[in-house]
Design a protein around this nucleic acid. Structure first.
Lengths: 156, 156
DNA sequence: ATTAATATTGAAAATCATTATCAATAAGGA
DNA sequence: TCCTTATTGATAATGATTTTCAATATTAAT
């Protein structure tokens, strides 16, 4: 059973009941998988991982749950250009896992980086403030990705 | 026939022959459409637009051409989360059309903004340099998008 | 605890954007 | 103009994601 810090019930339980959603076994299992990996899992990946311990959880539920989690802001959904969505547990800009992606357009490899995050966050905060006001948006999120060719692909 | 400035042949003709590609009617038509719009066209959108003047150009060719243009760096491909890719003629960071996107997660509306681009470009250049060196990537591109709720959707 | 109301689930079928096939055609250099 | 080869378009295939709907599990109330 996934704990935030080992001292209480799963910290996200409240996020569900607070919104009228129910905390179920499949949902816990999916959050559990996401919280234990540092990879960029596709829905299928999550399904396979969950399926090991909970054979009866279906792919449909995985899709639905992931969508719900994205909607709740607990999960980020990424498109790295390989035709399937990738999901990661989200952390606010100050979270330990906060990072951005560097994507090789040659082989599709994805590198997580945390360098320059502080400077980026600084600038992004300002930008968000400015955009919020100017366009009357309530900004909740941002996406930053760099594209290029990795070492191996440059030489081919 | 699309011109860069009205004084010569289409400026991108050379980009094609230089790479062993051929400049064809469908390709010109597609570039023409893209250069004349400020919208975020899907492949289907481009197809419909091209189809008006060139009834015989097929959807397959549109897909293929768009992919080629993306590969050549002449076009950007975006994912705004509505299940289909969107394409825009690309301009370098200093180009007049260079902008980023602000996406409403409520209704899907996409706002182009050019505010703060200078500061962003400044930071991004530094980040790119740092990342290039650290991860041995040859960085060619970046993507920045902000997500939130637009005025209308906040009130619902 | 038991029940009632309803959110959630899973299997299968449906959707739909994008790709692969392949014979016919068109571009560009010789 | 001819030849080589890239390109095209109609059709079929692919494959990730959604929809459907009856069965089940969860929560709040009794």
């Amino acid at each position: 059973m996934p704990m935030r810090d080992g001292t209480g019930p799963p910290w996200w339980h409240g996020r569900f009941s607070g919104c009228g959603y129910r905390m179920t076994v499949p949902r816990q299992a999916i959050l559990d998988i996401l919280s234990k990996t540092s990879e960029h899992l596709s829905a299928e990946d999550v399904y396979r991982a969950v399926h090991k311990s909970y054979t009866n959880v279906g792919l449909t539920t995985v899709y639905r749950t992931l969508e719900l989690l994205v909607h709740m802001g607990l999960v980020f959904k990424f498109d790295f250009g390989d035709g399937r969505a990738r999901y990661e547990l989200s952390e606010g800009p100050k979270g330990a896992r906060h990072h951005h992606h560097l994507i090789c357009t040659g082989c599709g490899r994805v590198v997580d980086y945390t360098d320059f995050i502080d400077e980026e966050v600084e600038l992004l905060n300002q930008t968000e403030k400015g955009l919020s006001k100017k366009y009357n948006f309530k900004i909740t999120n941002h996406l930053i990705q760099f594209y290029g060719l990795c070492d191996g692909c440059t030489k081919k």
